[in-house]
Design a protein around this nucleic acid. Structure first.
Lengths: 339, 339
DNA sequence: GCCTCCTGTGTAATCGATTGCAGTCGTGTT
DNA sequence: AACACGACTGCAATCGATTACACAGGAGGC
């Protein structure tokens, strides 16, 4: 079960390794007869390139690394799928890493990707500040694009959505449905997603005169459990707000579940919104009103930026691009106003 | 932004590359003074090994490839997480590939992994027969373990659960809840999971005298949509069975949703069961009774088998191992009997 | 008839880390 | 004092594919 090398193919075909390489890569002129002989020999031996050797020689791996906070969050999973598709179109592959929402694990993953000579890195940083050093350091060594989330104080390309604009839509919609007070359920303000969404929430609430009691800002993490806890807390406090705005769908799923468990009618008594439009958001009872991120576009832009960065010489990077796409509101049954 | 090589470190430290390598890998005797110099030089230059070059030399990448039918299926996602953890304990990394449930894509992925010189491959084949050739071929070149699903006619190691035993538990539980007739909702019988689960279902139904009308065997794919369609079809046919046994949780989620939408009470009118115990299974209304697979154990066994296979010389593989772990029934609200 | 140019092929260097072999220098032994 | 042995260290080969360069031979131009 020894691996077949180009040398063995060359010997069998009675030519040099250079010729074999030329035939198999389609580069350089080779006469038809020799081509046939080489291909035949390669087939018979079941030759397959050794991409390690090729990568060493070319210093190109045709592989892009991607680091996400959590692969079990369906939003990131679908983002990964979109990125993989986009890369597939360029003949590149994806090396996926899970940072487990831990900046230290994340830093190790980034270092590994550098060591592996990936052609570029797409990262959605776990933490708004603690991820900074590693991301910046990595960006100094390789083309790097931040996706969805970003980390402060770095100067890399970024692609994501305009969270503030999205929250404006959400709040307008809730307001149209009669909400005059609201709560916010998110993760700790340690990542840009929650931060931006919260900022957008707060600003528009003010504009619209929607009351936001400081006690009704509940920050935990992106999980169904946290959503359940947060809602239970609001319910226990007595007096519910007219709406609970969640920083992502997982939290919103937890919130609606807790409401149902406590006999609180959604959207009758309280309206609930999510964010991300994950597949399961339509399955909850009631189906969630949420914000749909244009994942395919985001992924395509990220891949494009990466390709562009790879093209430029390492030194002369232009100013970094910040691309904020506009997400769309998906209206379902967890809110009152109809489109 | 030129990468730092061992040669540059050597020059700066005033030693040979051999010595630098010995210091950094901790192999071979090097005097304390030289060690210090080398480490200092490496730190100052920010040296990091080039794992491509190392892999070429060592013909070991410390990377394991994993191919799953669909990364968007939460069951596989969590299996991937478990495998990643298990590999992490051995200092190995995971290269993840999504086969999009397409044997051709799968074959390409497998070929890529071979070309990349991964140390071993963990695959959950998409198709019970069409995946065969590629899996067998790949197994001839590298250590390979099949996980969860397997493909007929191959002789590789396999780790998964005893689907038949699981279905026995499911059927006994439904029977205890009063079910005397049942339907089965699964994917087409083109993968071992559905096949085995269906076989287990059918056999135990017979034993228990539970009626299974041929019209009530509904085969589509592993998705919520298919579950909805299947349930709608059963409902439209009039006369519902006492239970709907689903081949996985996604289908079951669709089934319960459709039942709710059509005003069919679960578990009052019809009991529903899932399989896999994905996170969302507890979120549906009602929460799903399902089968929990011991993912961590499965992953650990797979990694162990792979390590064992890598240890043996390529030729003298012993007989292949088939490890079927026993899953546990998780009783929730979509069925009637209580534990 | 001679020179140029192009096609086709081989030789050997290269990518960066690792390691077998050999050589150097001390220390300890007899 | 001669020798043996061990601790260090360097040289150079190696992994497998790619490619710059060299060279052979044939076609075409003058």
């Amino acid at each position: 079960m020894q691996r077949v090398t180009i040398a063995q193919v060359a010997e069998r075909a009675g030519v040099s390794t250079a010729t074999v390489s030329r035939v198999l890569s389609g580069r350089g002129p080779v006469s038809a007869g020799v081509q046939r002989k080489v291909r035949k020999a390669a087939d018979e031996l079941g030759y397959q390139v050794n991409s390690i050797a090729r990568a060493l020689r070319n210093s190109r791996t045709d592989t892009v690394g991607m680091v996400v906070p959590s692969i079990s969050n369906p939003f990131f999973t679908s983002l990964v799928e979109s990125v993989e598709h986009a890369l597939g179109r360029e003949g590149k592959e994806l090396f996926l890493c899970d940072a487990r929402s831990d900046p230290e694990v994340e830093a190790r993953r980034l270092a590994t990707l550098v060591a592996r000579n990936v052609d570029g890195i797409i990262v959605s940083p776990s933490h708004g500040t603690l991820s900074g050093a590693a991301v910046q350091e990595t960006a100094g060594r390789l083309p790097l694009v931040q996706l969805d989330r970003f980390v402060g104080g770095t100067s890399t390309d970024w692609v994501g959505v305009d969270d503030v604009a999205a929250m404006r839509q959400v709040m307008d919609h809730l307001h149209a449905g009669g909400a005059r007070s609201a709560a916010f359920a998110g993760s700790l303000l340690t990542n840009s997603s929650t931060e931006q969404r919260f900022a957008g929430f707060r600003r528009r609430a003010e504009d619209l005169g929607i009351a936001v009691d400081p006690d009704r800002i509940l920050l935990g993490d992106y999980s169904v459990e946290w959503g359940e806890t947060a809602a239970a807390r609001l319910i226990a406090a007595g007096d519910l707000p007219d709406a609970i705005v969640c920083a992502d769908d997982l939290i919103a799923l937890g919130v609606t579940r807790a409401c149902r468990a406590h006999g609180v009618d959604v959207p009758g008594r309280v309206q609930v919104t999510g964010y991300d439009n994950i597949e399961f958001s339509r399955l909850s009872e009631p189906a969630l009103t949420t914000v749909d991120q244009p994942r395919e576009r985001i992924a395509a832009e990220a891949v494009r930026l990466l390709a562009a960065a790879a093209g430029e010489a390492a030194g002369d990077r232009g100013p970094s691009a910040h691309i904020a796409l506009v997400p769309t509101l998906v209206i379902r049954e967890s809110t009152r106003a109809r489109a």
